[in-house]
Structure formats: C-alpha cells, structure tokens
Design a binder for these strands. Structure first.
Length: 193
DNA sequence: CGTCAGATGATC
DNA sequence: ATCATCTGACGC
C-alpha cells in the first residue's frame, strides 16, 4: 500500500506519482489515469481559498486521508489530501481504468447500459460507491478504501484544470491536470499535451 | 470535434 | 447565487 508519507508532499508531486496507482474498495479495483493538483498555499482554484468551513474541513486534514464533497448536488468527488495537516491541499481523482468489479461498478451507476467509461470525477466516485460518510477516511490503512502502488505511465500529459473559471488567471492556466498518455480512460483529451 | 441546457441540492 | 459534473441533443 502507499504509505502515509507518500501523501505528505506537494500536491503536484503526489499527483504525478498517483498516475498509474491503484484504488481498491472491496471487489472494485481502479487504476488512476487522470488527476488534478490543488496546491497550497495561494491556489485560488482550491476549495480552501476562502478558509476552513464545515464542508471543506476534511481538505485541511492530515495527508493520506480522503476529502469528498457533493458536486452540483449529484456527484461525490474524491480527493486525496496531501501536504501537511492544517494545509488545504489535495489531488482530485478525475478518471480511472476499471481493473476489477465491473458488475458492481455497473450496478452502482444505475440501470443504464453501455460501456463502462470512468472518464470523469463523478463517475469515479460512483464506481467506488463513495458518499460524504467517507470524509476523513485514511487510505493508507487496510479496510475500506485503499491506495496501492501500480504501474507508472509511459507518458504523462498535462493541461489546465477543468471547471475552475472562477480562479485567478494564473491558477486557471496552470498545467496541473495530469493524465496517463497511453490510457483511453481520460477526459477532454484535446486539452492536454 | 464542439457547444448547450437541464438535472439537482448543499453551502456560505 | 454559486458550483472541481453528467447526459443527451444538436451542429460542423
């Protein structure tokens, strides 16, 4: 498993090293193919930009824990908290390649048929069956949601983060979205290089 | 490939 | 009012 110390670094470094890593919960296993770094301090795209609140409290927690929040009233987005305790930094998991548990993933996303494409953060949260109850969960401990070392990417693509138009222009343009180059499970591929 | 609207609900 | 999204519809 990835040790707690793995997460106690700058979010951009952790993001790079999380590409190819594995997330596992019960019979469902995913390979991380796309991430975004939300850094500390001074990142105006981060949920921590207005200070600590009830909703983002877990974001300020110790490294190696989980920050989940409800996005647009529908999707539970998964962040892995990085840096030091008391800092608001994390890596958002945007896309994954399913490795095991396809039938469970299919069931969790509802009755729809069609191919399983985990090419968006809401889909990743749904595939893992996450909700707000997972806030603060430690992924370096066995049981529940776990993070493992995986196969590093051959090529890393980079581009601006998605959906952060509200941020300062420098933060909006910062190439802190990272993706596995050879993976089909990546969203907005044309915005990467 | 691109854009767009509507769903949907907690938060500050 | 805002929002780190998804889906389906439509146009090129």
């Amino acid at each position: 498993m990835l040790p707690r110390s793995f997460f106690a670094r700058d979010a951009l470094e952790v993001a790079r090293d999380l590409l190819g890593a594995r997330l596992q919960r019960g019979g469902v296993a995913l390979r991380i193919t796309e991430v975004e770094a939300y850094r500390w301090p001074g990142d105006t795209a981060s949920h921590g930009r207005h200070g600590r609140t009830e909703r983002n409290d877990a974001l300020w927690g110790p490294p190696g824990t989980v920050y989940i929040y409800l996005c647009y009233g529908m999707h539970h987005l998964l962040n892995l908290v990085t840096g030091a305790d008391g800092e608001a930094a994390a890596v958002l998991v945007r896309a994954c390649e399913p490795l095991a548990g396809l039938s469970t993933i299919r069931r969790r996303r509802g009755g729809r048929d069609g191919p399983v494409l985990l090419n968006g953060p809401g889909k990743v949260g749904a595939a893992l069956g996450l909700d707000l109850g997972w806030n603060g969960h430690a992924v370096y401990l066995p049981g529940g949601l776990e993070a493992y070392r995986g196969t590093p990417p051959k090529e890393v693509l980079r581009g601006p983060r998605i959906g952060v138009d509200y941020a300062r222009s420098t933060d909006r343009a910062a190439p802190w979205r990272l993706a596995v180059g050879e993976s089909a499970w990546v969203g907005y591929r044309s915005r990467l290089k």
